[in-house]
Write a protein that binds this DNA or RNA. Sequence first.
DNA 1: GGAGTAGGTTGGATTTTCCAACTAACTTGT
DNA 2: ACAAGTTAGTTGGAAAATCCAACCTACTCC
Lengths: 158, 158
Amino acid sequence: MELTDRADAGPRACFIAAGLEVLGERWALLALREMSLGVHRFDQIARNTGASRDILTSRLRTLESQGVIERVQYSERPPRHEYHLTASGAEVAPILISLAAWSSTWMRDETPRASYRHSCGADLKPVLSCAECGEEFGVGSLMLGPLVSTSSAIPVEE
Amino acid sequence: MELTDRADAGPRACFIAAGLEVLGERWALLALREMSLGVHRFDQIARNTGASRDILTSRLRTLESQGVIERVQYSERPPRHEYHLTASGAEVAPILISLAAWSSTWMRDETPRASYRHSCGADLKPVLSCAECGEEFGVGSLMLGPLVSTSSAIPVEE
DNA sequence: GGAGTAGGTTGGATTTTCCAACTAACTTGT
DNA sequence: ACAAGTTAGTTGGAAAATCCAACCTACTCC
């Protein structure tokens, strides 16, 4: 079977692994969470995430270089910048939401934590479905497709 | 405003942060990807993820202790175990799928990577919507809810 | 003029991760 | 019988990432 029998093929290069190279480093997703919640300044992102300032600086630079966030100047003297999500960063939301939903369903401990909800007011209960056929995604519906190279193609902004 | 003005409140304890404590460590999500794809043995998970064997051992133990995976014996002499997703682990799929979809939309480089698709055959284009109102989730629809403690409540298995 | 705010940078300690080699307990081939 | 291979780890030491507190710059406010 091709999934398990990859012999000497080396690590599986897939889009999950690629995404984790950018979003999977420590503090990156929590920084994006803050921006998604409307927190845009360095000091507050540092406080609200708990990341040390040097690491946070490094993460923000990486996210910026990958086009996930951008620095927006809000003061000229002294020069001060805010961090904002780009179109790419805004689309990280489904990952955060799926994570929050999984965690609130399965994590059991006594520490009180902030929950999330949909803007309609309901408790967080997201459903992931295929845009094509409308059917819900589950473990079994995750299938490997062909190898693709994304070098030249420009993502369509809608 | 309450989101940005948390003063000395310390790091935001939320379900995203809680989830990342388990799933956010290096290699954890890639190991779960392998199990989601039907790969259940130590050597092959190590090969397919690229994780070093000692770290992988440590991750699998953590995931097991958190109830995300379980060890299933498949040989008695010598004692050998396979790693399988629990109900909790199976529900990590939406996170992996959202990550794969984000990555294939926004990551641009030349390395050819395995893509994913829905089992209906269509390219990966997942839509996350609210189970209650049916409306799609976006950045703006991620809202903080009340503080909750999950100590005693038992998640409903359906 | 001193304190406070904002966004960093620096040096050094600590923690994680990496890597190759090694072990243990078998099974298979000759 | 004996060597080689398979599977699931463990070990020790080097390398890399992270943490932390202190420091710096350039302002503003009192």
